[in-house]
Design a protein around this nucleic acid. Structure first.
Length: 599
RNA sequence: GCCGAUGUAGCUUAGUGGUAAAGCAGCGGUUUUGUAAACCGCCGACAGCAGUUCGAUUCUGCUCAUCGGCUCCA
């Protein structure tokens, strides 16, 4: 059977065959199937550009006509190395197979009955043979590539990619293609992408005047406009209410600290590259902080702690600065200044499970409120091979804390995927993965265990038995950062924020300026009730004012004219065109009530 | 940071080796408006710095920024 992965992978072979025909001295490396299509990485002797894709695609369409079959050829590693003797990338792959004692397999795609023998290939030393193409490959292809629908795939774009995904390696040229089972599916995908681009937070953020960037301020440093600031403040209100109810205590700490603190915390070796370079003053180096934990640890250390003080939950919307590489910046999703819904929970081992569980519940509560249902809980664990380098060298503590987290997740029946080598340096974590409108994956929020840093700070509490013990620390940020969370919510709601989050909640549009005073009085009384009312009293037609209100995606509006003034009521109109006629005092209580209940 | 692409007014777009065009927005006026764009006028831009050229927004180089990826990541 031809499944879509097989078709995509077959097209990657086809891409390599076409590229090698046009650029005989190119070196092809690997070409897998991916979501929505395929790619193939090459080393070209001179750079190619988007303009070259057309002729490569044309060549692919020519070649595929003759590709009746994919047929496996088994070869010894020694022979395979001879066949690919002028391609160091393939040689490296063959040597890896050799080390793992795996059979080297090649695949011939081309006319039926023309599959070459190993000795023919060793002699030919080329991949284009017998009217077909040979590539090193473990398999998984379409049965009859020539029958793949011609309109169901196309080449899409060019990008750079490091050989084997390692930035220390040479950068190769990656050609991407799109492929689906049918032409209709490809067209639908492209149409969906066009639609998704309209929801892109960068576009909507500008249209709705939520945030902006400025060259003199710097890349990755968002300026929050009045509308965005309203959203920030509503989110903070939500966080503060929720955290207060859950027994958190709020703290506030400076955005900078001396180098010595980060030496103590152990962050410096792991994060020095992403922290802004230190500023020196009176002979002391200060860093702009990239994380809030050390400051909170210092608050824990500010007085002797008893087991009676635990769990101690210290919360702060912490402002952090990270020198992300220029090419990694992405709208609000990846920035150089971020405001984190941070808190650190210091607890005993016995308290850990309950604390971790209730943090997870807080996540789920938020997701329900926002209607976020497409996410994956990722349990990120360490990689034993990288202890002492990427992770603190405490194998027993890693095992113990990972078991603790796993047990909480299993017991709470939260579906999760376990992914090794994604932990923080100080402990395992649970990340919430979401996708942007254009399909890019992000960690929205995180819940981390720290068994290492409290010890480094000599944090201790006196237990019942009078002995000093080190607390565990949970780092958690259910609402992530304002930047990423708002970026995500803009796309999630396509700019149609729920009433409670909307920068403007109700627009008042007088029919003509005769009614401006009345409308002003009305909007003033709404504002006194803490409702974000905005007057649309410009010297424009009513139609135009309504258009502006709709484009601003304001959830409610009311038109004020002679009818309303006489009847002392108004008609509240919603986004979907629903209308309700109310007396003014009822209007205020209705809207205020919906806001209070976060509708 | 790396590979590739892009950069015209606040926004969306047109265009050229020889004075840069328009719509929206803004401002001034007229109009007094009943559910997605009233009318008239005005203001406003070739990302920056070099080079080639009689002349550069257009060609070349560098810088900056953005976009698509890679790497990294809350």
């Amino acid at each position: 059977m031809n499944n879509i992965e097989h078709i995509r992978h077959s097209l990657a072979h086809l891409l390599a065959a076409a590229a090698l025909e046009i650029y005989p001295d190119a070196k092809n490396t690997i070409g897998p199937a991916i979501d929505n299509g395929f790619y193939y990485d090459f080393e070209f002797s001179s750079p190619i550009t988007d303009k070259d894709l057309g002729k490569i695609e044309q060549k692919m369409r020519e070649l595929i006509k003759h590709w009746q079959i994919f047929e496996k050829i088994e070869a010894s590693a020694a022979n395979a190395k001879k066949i690919f003797s002028d391609n160091p990338y393939k040689i490296e792959l063959i040597e890896d197979l050799e080390k793992k004692n795996e059979q080297v397999t090649l695949y011939f795609s081309g006319p039926k009955g023309k599959t070459p023998t190993v000795s023919e290939l060793v002699f030919a030393k080329r991949m284009t043979v017998n009217g077909g193409f040979v590539d090193l490959c473990r398999g998984g292809h379409a049965d009859e590539p020539s029958k793949i629908q011609s309109g169901s795939w196309k080449l899409s774009h060019i990008a750079g990619a490091y050989w084997r995904g390692d930035e220390k390696n040479k950068m190769l040229t990656r050609i991407y293609g799109l492929a689906f089972l049918s032409k209709e599916e490809l067209e639908k995908f492209e149409k969906d992408m066009e639609e998704a681009k309209k929801r892109d937070h960068r576009k909507l953020g500008q249209q709705l005047e939520i945030f902006t960037f400025d060259n003199d301020v710097g890349p990755g440093l968002p300026l929050w406009l009045p509308n965005g600031t309203v959203i920030i403040e509503e989110l903070e209100k939500l966080a503060k209410e929720t955290e207060f109810a859950a027994g958190y205590k709020r703290v506030r700490t400076p955005h900078i600290a001396k180098e010595s603190m980060y030496k103590t915390s152990g962050h410096l070796p792991y994060y020095e590259d992403t922290m802004y370079p230190p500023m020196e003053y009176e002979g002391t180096k200060y860093y702009l902080r990239a994380m809030n934990c050390p400051h909170h640890h210092k608050i824990f250390a500010s007085k002797p702690m008893s087991y009676r003080d635990l769990p101690l939950r210290l919360a702060e919307y912490g402002t952090d600065y990270r020198q992300e590489k220029s090419g990694e910046l992405f709208g609000l999703m990846r920035v150089r200044m971020l405001s984190m819904n941070d808190a650190h929970i210091y607890c005993t081992e016995e308290q850990f499970a309950e604390e971790f569980r209730s943090v997870n519940e807080m996540y789920l509560k938020y997701f329900k409120l926002f209607g976020i249902d497409r996410y994956v809980m990722r349990f990120s664990t360490h990689d034993p091979k990288r202890l002492g380098e990427k992770y603190v060298n405490e194998p027993l503590l890693w095992a113990k804390t990972e078991d603790m987290v796993r047990k909480v997740l299993v017991d709470s029946k939260i579906p999760f995927v376990e992914v090794p080598n994604e932990a923080a340096f100080y402990g395992p974590k649970m990340d919430v993965q979401v996708w942007s409108a254009i399909g890019r994956e992000f960690t929205l929020a995180t819940n981390q265990v720290d068994f290492a840093v409290p010890k480094r700070f000599n944090l201790a509490y006196t237990d019942k038995d009078g002995k000093e013990k080190t607390p565990l620390c949970i780092h958690r940020a259910p609402l992530g950062t304002h930047e990423r969370t708002i970026g995500f919510l803009i796309e999630h709601y396509a700019g149609n924020f729920p009433l409670w989050l909307s920068p403007v909640q109700i627009a008042i549009a007088p029919v003509s300026d005769k009614f401006n005073d009345y409308a002003k009085t009305l909007s003033d009384s709404l504002r006194k009730a803490d409702i974000r009312a905005e007057l649309y009293n410009s010297n424009e037609s009513l139609g135009k004012k309504i258009r502006q209100i709709k484009l601003a995606k304001i959830p409610y509006f009311a038109v004020i004219g002679e009818k309303e003034v006489e009847a002392n009521n108004l008609t509240l109109e919603g986004r979907s065109g629903d209308k309700e006629t109310l007396e003014i005092k009822n209007l205020i209580s209705k809207v205020a009530d919906e806001i209070k209940n976060r509708k």
